[in-house]
Computed example of a mutant assay.
Amino acid sequence: MTPEQTQADLLPGFLAISSVLTGFSEHALRGTGQTELYLATACEMVGDDSMRMMLGAFSACDIGDDTEAMGRHMRLCILSHARFGPLARNLIKLWYIGTWHCMPRDWHEAFGGNPADRDHIPSPTSYTEGLLWPAIGANPPGAKPFGYGMWANPPRVTRA
């Protein structure tokens, strides 16, 4: 199986777990234009096997629409897990601020991954498409302006 086929196979699960981790819909995540790139970045840095295992653990719990149960499952089975927790936290940071942070050294020693793992920005649009900006109701400084003089107004914070 080629890497492209492997990653295409992982895409639905990646979108599903990313939606739960970030609180944004799969549609909103796809709208950033970063989905395939972020999946490829994570797979390159930690390996397809680690990603596949985390997505398998995530999909193993079929809880329907019970958000409270989903939160418990994420805390117990993903975020608290020695292998999946650091990866899940990196995905949150990647989606929100557009930067991949190097996995911890002890993680690499225990689980492998790419020895060339490093902090980096996956694409020139990662910063402007970060979920941080819609989450706080603002536009990224220097990009996506609302219009003339909008810098003079405070950010519009929306409440859920």
Rank of each mutant, 00 (worst) to 15 (best):
D62T: 14
P104C: 07
E4P: 02
S50F: 02
V46Q: 02
L11V: 08
L87D: 07
G56Q: 11
G31W: 14
I78H: 03
P141R: 05
A82W: 05
D117V: 07
R159G: 00
C102L: 12
M54C: 09
T158A: 04
M53I: 10
I97Y: 11
L132R: 13
T158V: 12
G147F: 06
T41P: 04
S25E: 13
V20G: 05
G85L: 05
H120F: 15
A42L: 14
W133R: 02
T35S: 15
T128C: 10
A88L: 03
T6M: 07
I17N: 04
A57E: 09
T35K: 13
L39K: 01
Q7F: 03
S59V: 05
E44V: 04
Y127R: 10
L37E: 11
F146V: 08
W133A: 01
G137P: 04
Q34M: 14
A57Q: 06
T32E: 01
E44I: 02
L94G: 00
T125L: 15
G147K: 04
R89T: 10
Y96S: 04
C43D: 00
L39F: 05
L29Q: 00
E4D: 10
E109G: 06
D62Q: 14
G23T: 00
G64L: 03
I17D: 04
I63R: 15
Y148H: 14
D119L: 04
S25H: 11
F84V: 00
Y148G: 00
A152I: 00
T2I: 10
I17Q: 07
W95G: 09
T158P: 02
G31H: 07
Y148R: 14
C61N: 12
A28S: 12
H108N: 13
P86W: 10
G23S: 10
A143E: 08
M74R: 11
A135D: 07
D65F: 03
E36C: 02
F14S: 06
L132Q: 08
G113C: 09
A160K: 06
D106V: 11
M70I: 12
T6R: 15
L39N: 15
L94A: 00
L79P: 05
V157D: 00
S59Q: 03
G112A: 03
D106L: 07
L10A: 12
P104V: 02
I78R: 02
S25L: 08
E68W: 06
S59N: 09
V46H: 02
S18D: 08
G149C: 01
H108K: 08
L55A: 06
A138D: 09
G85N: 06
T35C: 11
R83K: 15
Y96G: 12
A88T: 06
A42S: 15
T41G: 09
L87K: 00
E36T: 14
T67E: 15
S50I: 15
L132E: 10
T125W: 13
S18I: 03
D49C: 12
P115S: 01
R83P: 13
C102S: 09
P141A: 04
T2H: 12
A88H: 02
L37V: 15
W151K: 12
A143Q: 08
H73Y: 07
W133E: 03
H27R: 13
M150Q: 10
D65S: 12
L131C: 01
P122Y: 04
G13D: 02
T35D: 12
T158L: 05
P3V: 12
D49S: 11
L55I: 09
V157A: 14
M54I: 03
F24L: 03
T2G: 08
